[in-house]
């Protein structure tokens, strides 16, 4: 019964449904990015570009030629990477301690991280805006990296401590018994075991930082620090009275490419990280 044709068909339909669900809007935004800008002004309904309204790569060229947009990509990459690296370093120390050592306040760290992960980020905008403009962090990279820590750090701590919990730490001692120095034991045994977890945590953290919008629009005002999501929402085309839908779509596709590449390359790791023991026991 378990493999009846009916059931197989049901699974196949379900699989098709998932693919449609996930990919249709992506296909739509790609299709939109190929509609010509003039046709958008006058209305160009339908999924695919209508007759004679196919714009080729024009929108991509125009989006890429936009200085503000390029700066925003650069800002996003820079700010997200710095936030990721700092979070992962700090979280690695904490997660190691949580997974490996007995100490007072272990629960406190985890509870704090959990509470902060649920924190409404908009609540931070007011006070941070007021402080940042007073101390000159407003509209700078650092002014975004610091608040990003409020959500990247708890995420990194959770993911990493879950991974580190799975590492057979005894192997380090075993290696030392076999004559390795403790540095060698750490480098040859622990690092290779821990690296995949650290890497996964870094990818997830990067996703979150890349996705941020609230801080991005509130704590910046020029391309000196404005990240991609904020830049997209302020996207200005040649015609100031019309939202340049197709140009924006092209910009959105460009901004999504890094994410798609990361997903394609590291699919397995991301799934593992996302659900790492999410609900075991």
């Amino acid at each position: 019964m378990g493999n009846s044709p009916l059931r197989k068909a049901g699974i196949a339909v379900g699989a098709l449904l998932i693919l449609t669900w996930c990919l249709l809007p992506v296909a739509w935004i790609i299709s939109l990015s190929f509609k010509s800008q003039e046709s958008i002004t006058n209305g160009n309904p339908g999924f695919l570009p209508g007759d004679g309204t196919f714009a080729g790569w024009d929108n991509y060229v125009a989006a890429w030629d936009n200085e503000q947009f390029r700066r925003a990509i650069f800002n996003s990459i820079g700010i997200s990477l710095i936030a990721t690296v700092l979070s992962v370093i700090i979280a690695t120390l904490a997660a190691y301690a949580i997974a490996r050592l007995e100490f007072k306040g272990k629960k406190l760290v985890l509870t704090t991280a959990l509470a902060i992960a649920m924190f409404p980020v908009v609540s931070l905008v007011g006070p941070l805006f007021d402080m940042w403009r007073a101390i000159g962090l407003y509209d700078t990279w650092a002014g975004l990296v610091i608040p990003y820590m409020s959500f990247t750090l708890p995420l990194a701590i959770w993911t990493l401590s879950a991974f580190f919990r799975e590492i057979p730490w005894e192997m380090e001692q075993a290696a030392q018994v076999d004559g390795a120095t403790s540095w060698q034991a750490f480098r040859k045994v622990i690092v290779p075991l821990a690296a995949p977890g650290v890497f996964t945590a870094a990818i997830l953290t990067f996703f979150f930082a890349w996705n941020d919008f609230v801080f991005g629009i509130s704590l910046t005002s020029t391309e000196a620090a404005r990240p991609i999501p904020a830049s997209l929402s302020f996207f200005v085309g040649a015609d100031p009275f019309n939202r340049p839908a197709s140009l924006l779509a092209a910009g959105a596709v460009i901004a999504t490419i890094p994410i798609i590449v990361i997903v394609l390359v590291f699919q397995r790791k991301i799934v593992a990280g996302l659900t790492s023991g999410a609900v075991k026991g």
Partner: peptide, 14 residues
Amino acid sequence: LIPYGIITVVSGFA
């Protein structure tokens, strides 16, 4: 994973 990774702003626009 693609919807998960896509920027919320982009999803909103789409």
